[in-house]
Computed example of a mutant assay.
Amino acid sequence: MVATRILAIDLATVGAAAWTAGELGGLDTLHFDLRARAGLTLKKRAAGHGAIFAQLHTLVLDLIDLTKPEVVAIEKDTGRGYGTLVMLGGLRGVAELACAQRGVRCITDIDASTARSLAGVGGGSTSKAVAGGRARMLFGLTTQTDDEVDAVVLHHAVRARLLDEHRQALVKASLAKVKRTPSTRRRAA
């Protein structure tokens, strides 16, 4: 069975989440600013990493409890400078911890370019602005922030990946049945 409840998180100090809502598979989104949630000013952000991590941990646990996902996807960050990569690595680790504490599968290996490609809004050299415009048109998004659009794109990408995993499992199971089925050919004497 393919997972139908997905929580996708565009992870950053200022980021967003998108999740499957309702029986018809609609999406809800949430934009968040961890720095503001931690009560930090922009200048004190570096000194407040622990408070930001604590806010993220609480936020992810709350989102998992609210949305009851079968899968949580956290976008893999591949760019920017060393300090940003270290911070995002810490954020990803905290989010993965929250998933493990709730016993939810966590996917962390889809970067923005792959997400755009899997979601059908671009890929490779497609700029974020172009992909965001395509996503807004394709998915009917009107008021979401760029972060929320990124989370929606990641959500659709994960859905496509999970469908592919399901198809591959079906093919593998079918091949295994064929190998176990005795041959009906007669052997030459």
Rank of each mutant, 00 (worst) to 15 (best):
C99P: 03
T20P: 05
R159L: 13
G25Q: 12
Q55T: 05
R80I: 07
T84Y: 05
D146I: 03
R37M: 15
I110R: 09
V94Q: 05
D62A: 14
V60E: 02
V94P: 00
A16P: 00
A189R: 14
A47P: 00
A3H: 10
V60D: 03
G48H: 05
V60K: 08
T142I: 14
A119E: 05
V152Q: 04
E23G: 10
A129N: 06
A3T: 00
F53Q: 06
Q168W: 01
L27W: 03
L88A: 07
G93W: 04
R167C: 08
D28K: 13
I52Q: 10
T143F: 06
T4S: 14
T67E: 01
V72W: 05
A160K: 11
V152H: 05
L34N: 06
G123T: 12
L175N: 12
G50I: 09
I6V: 15
A16F: 01
D147A: 11
H49N: 11
L118S: 02
L27Q: 12
S113L: 02
L59E: 05
D33V: 09
H49I: 13
K172F: 06
A173M: 04
A176T: 09
R80P: 02
A8C: 10
K128E: 06
G83Y: 03
S183W: 04
D62P: 01
A16W: 01
S117V: 01
R102L: 04
T126E: 08
T67N: 02
L154K: 08
R185W: 08
S127G: 15
R80G: 13
L61A: 14
A51W: 00
V153L: 07
R180V: 02
H31Y: 13
P69N: 14
V72T: 13
E75V: 08
G140R: 15
D28I: 00
L40T: 05
V86P: 00
V152P: 00
L170A: 12
C106A: 14
G26A: 13
G26I: 01
A189I: 06
A21E: 12
D10E: 09
L163H: 14
T126A: 12
A51Q: 15
A173I: 02
R185F: 05
V14D: 04
A115V: 10
M1S: 15
L7Q: 04
G26F: 01
E70Y: 02
G15I: 09
A188S: 12
M87P: 00
E148F: 08
L141H: 05
R105N: 03
G25M: 10
A160F: 00
A46T: 14
T20K: 10
A98D: 01
V14T: 15
L24Y: 07
L11V: 05
E148T: 08
M137D: 11
L27S: 08
I6L: 10
E70C: 01
R80S: 15
V86C: 02
T84G: 11
Q55N: 03
G48Q: 07
W19V: 04
